[in-house]
Amino acid sequence: MIDEHHEELAALYALDLLEGAELAAFETSLAQNAALRALVDQLRQASTALALEKSAPPPSPALRVRVLASIDSLPRAAATPAPVGVSQQPLAPVVSFNAALWTGWAAAACFALATAYFGSHYFTARTEATLLRNDAEFARTESQSLQQRIEAERILNSNYIAQLQKSGDLANLKIAKLADLLGNSPQAVAIAVWNPLSQEGVLTVEKLPLLQSDQDYQLWVIDPAYKDPVSGGVFTVDEKGVARVSFRPSQSIKTAATFAISRERKGGSSSTPQGPVIAAGTL
């Protein structure tokens, strides 16, 4: 039985709309749940129906030629070797040699051969460049996804999440990855895990800049029900920029849409952020 929350995540995943920690957490669930994987496959297949809804014009006839020319220039991974040296075409009739007549044909043939040669090289180079670019993009995406998954799994496996699970089902937890807004700490990682039932959460940060002794970081929960952000409390980081804090906002949160971290004077702000907002993330 798949609950509504996971159905929703499956639909968003099928449409490639999950990102960051939410994506990593869902892929972790997906790896452990065959029913969820089947649902994702069904929804992905249903989503492709949207592509067939409207009648489409055909591409230009030149595209077919280009595609086939490109694959001819690529090595075939499991291809059957093409017959060599055996022509399937009927032989042309032999005619007497006429130099004047054949000069034009020879020039045309040279031109055709040159065109074919350079055209083939062009398509080969273009296709290889495309494939290399795709491979690089794929590797980069995989790397990012892997890093995010490791981060999310580490956090989800931590004792802090175990504490949260005591008061609520894991399925109810909402996860937000906060991104650096100022550009001065791009290595910083901040993940907020929020349990709307118990009204408490855990914030884990790493590689945030050390603060001066008269400063604190302050967590804010942005709930559309309130005009101002709701404070989630203040915290500092150790010399490695690490902090793991449990938080309970100062007011009841109806819909936690966004989490943000600001840099404040020691003790934090009692109303709205007074210092710069350094990171924010949406559930």
């Binding site: 159905e7 929703e8 639909a11 968003l12 449409l15 069904q42 249903a46």
Partner: peptide
């Protein structure tokens, strides 16, 4: 929006 996407895609399936 998330709920609409979920319901719409399930119905389409």
């Amino acid at each position: 929006v998330k709920a609409r996407i979920r319901r719409g895609l399930l119905k389409l399936r």
